[in-house]
Nucleic acid binder design. Sequence first.
DNA 1: CAAGTTACCTGACGGC
DNA 2: TGCCGTCAGGTAACTT
Length: 276
Amino acid sequence: MPELPEVETICRGIRPHILDKKFCDFWHSGKQLRWPIPIPAIKQHLLGQCVSTVTRRAKYLLVHFDNKALLAFHFGMTGNLGIFSKKYPRATHCHLAFTLDDKKELRYTDTRRFGAIKVFGEKEVPHIEETLFGKTGPEPFSQAFNADYLLKIAQTRKLAIKPFIMDTQVVAGVGNIYANEALFSSGIAPYREVNTLHREQWNTLIRKIRETLDQAIVCGGATISDYVNAAQGPGYFQMHFKVYGKAGEACQDCGTILEKIQIRGRASYFCRKCQK
DNA sequence: CAAGTTACCTGACGGC
DNA sequence: TGCCGTCAGGTAACTT
């Protein structure tokens, strides 16, 4: 899916197009996403309302309305949002479309339908930090994501570092691609058990996770497979991966052939010499 | 409680 | 050409 940088890119891309616009009508495909599309809540809380802000939390994109209601999108593996002219035919896997008062449409597409859409009314919104994000860890750019925190939660666990940093309860927004990239940049092997990492390594990893995500956001989100940014163009620049998808190629730092292994069922790419 | 496995769904790709 | 297996950005419900 869109990992954090892609969600951030979609967020920044659609924000100027929907800010202060009214949600006048909607259409849906009738297909289920991870959960059913909440038709009654859309009618009750969103129609006739204007967008006040558009934000991101973890891998969720959040559309806030003047009546305090909230529309939350999760993109799963293949979800995306875009602004289209009403005349432009809907894509095959478009599952939800909102007509705005400028006659344009905000369209959600999702080939694999692993994504999710939730609506919260005014009375539910104050509780989403417990309901929607109750088990979600700190944002990677927040002060709460620090070495003390990681040392504390890692000391009793023997999990490999890669699934650990991909765990949304540990830190929000780091998926498979950027976990691989940040670990390479940190010189830490993906299978390294978390209770063996020292404070200095955690500090390096925190810094590299932030740098990796930040660079990807600057690049407009990675351009991979069917991901297209909210402006419907490719990422502004091709995000350059150092290890992801590069098994069999030479490490850019030492020339060793990069390897691919499975960790917890996820493809993990690394350099055996540079990462310990 | 931690950690491993499976399921959800479609499409692209490689081998035969 | 087509059939089959494998794999893909994520998450949550299972089991061990």
